[in-house]
Amino acid sequence: MAESRLAFRAVVPGDRTALERMHRRCSEATRYHRFQTRGPGLPESYLDTVLGESAGVTSILATDGPPDRRRVVALASMAPVSPGVAELGILVEDGWQRRGVGRLLVRQLVGVGRAQALHALTAQTLTTRRWILGLLRDEVGGAVSYGPMSDTVRITAFLEPVGERCG
């Protein structure tokens, strides 16, 4: 599980440089897994979106380090794509992967989605990363479906209202 020195907070416009630095610290493979494109820089349109320049977007950072020198190590976002549906996006710096950081971020976004009365969350990922299905199933507690899109897969997790969640 993630280490206790992690802190989570909403993204603010002043985080642009810290997000760009975190993205540069990620390996090419990590960047490709997240954006399904090769390129050295954080896509400007995505950066604008997570920094709050698009209505209805929720973005959360995970930071590490002492309070006076915190460093961004992960970013999660949830952007509306249609009424009642939002798309998830998560980028975790290589050294923090497989330590529960992404799961904690997904859990927070699922909570926000429920509070906003969303009925589904979607994510697009490479077909080789189907383990994300299990993560969403665990965190959502509802039905999860997926459909192939060439070398990627579109995952949809259906949110149940909090009072109706089983298990």
Rank of each mutant, 00 (worst) to 15 (best):
V57K: 04
R70W: 15
E53M: 13
I155R: 02
L61F: 10
T156Q: 12
V12D: 01
R16Y: 04
S54Q: 12
T152G: 09
V73D: 10
A7R: 13
A2Q: 10
G167D: 10
E28P: 10
L126V: 00
L136I: 06
G56Y: 12
T37F: 02
Y146Q: 05
G95C: 13
V50K: 08
L104M: 14
E87P: 11
G41L: 09
A7E: 05
L51M: 05
S150Q: 13
V11K: 02
E87V: 07
R99S: 14
R137N: 00
C26H: 11
A76T: 05
A123L: 11
W96L: 03
V50G: 06
T49C: 15
V11Y: 01
R103S: 12
Y46L: 07
T58D: 08
A143G: 09
F8R: 01
G111Q: 06
V81H: 02
T127F: 03
G89E: 08
L47F: 14
V73P: 12
G52S: 08
R9S: 14
Q116C: 05
V11W: 00
P40R: 00
D15C: 05
R38M: 06
R107V: 01
V153C: 08
V92G: 11
P43H: 07
G113A: 15
F35D: 06
R16K: 13
P161T: 08
G141A: 07
P66N: 09
L61S: 10
V92P: 13
G56L: 09
R9T: 02
L88H: 14
P83Y: 05
M78C: 15
V57W: 10
G100Q: 04
L91W: 15
L118E: 09
L6D: 05
D64N: 13
G167T: 13
G95N: 14
R71N: 06
C26P: 08
T125R: 03
G134C: 01
M78N: 03
V57H: 11
G141R: 05
S54N: 02
T17H: 02
G52W: 04
V110H: 03
T63W: 10
R31W: 10
Y46T: 10
R130A: 01
G56F: 12
T122V: 13
P13I: 04
A29M: 13
A18I: 02
G56A: 02
R16A: 12
I155M: 00
S27A: 09
M1L: 13
E139Y: 01
E28Y: 08
A10G: 01
L133N: 04
R16G: 01
G167P: 11
L121S: 01
L47S: 09
G41Y: 01
E139A: 04
I90Q: 14
F158Q: 08
G147L: 06
S77Y: 06
D48F: 13
L47M: 05
A79I: 06
R21F: 05
M22C: 14
L126S: 00
R165Y: 03
R154S: 09
V81G: 06
G39Y: 03
R165E: 10
I60L: 15
V72N: 10
H119R: 12
Y46R: 07
R34N: 08
R154Q: 03
S54V: 13
R107L: 00
A55S: 11
T30L: 12
T49I: 04
V140E: 00
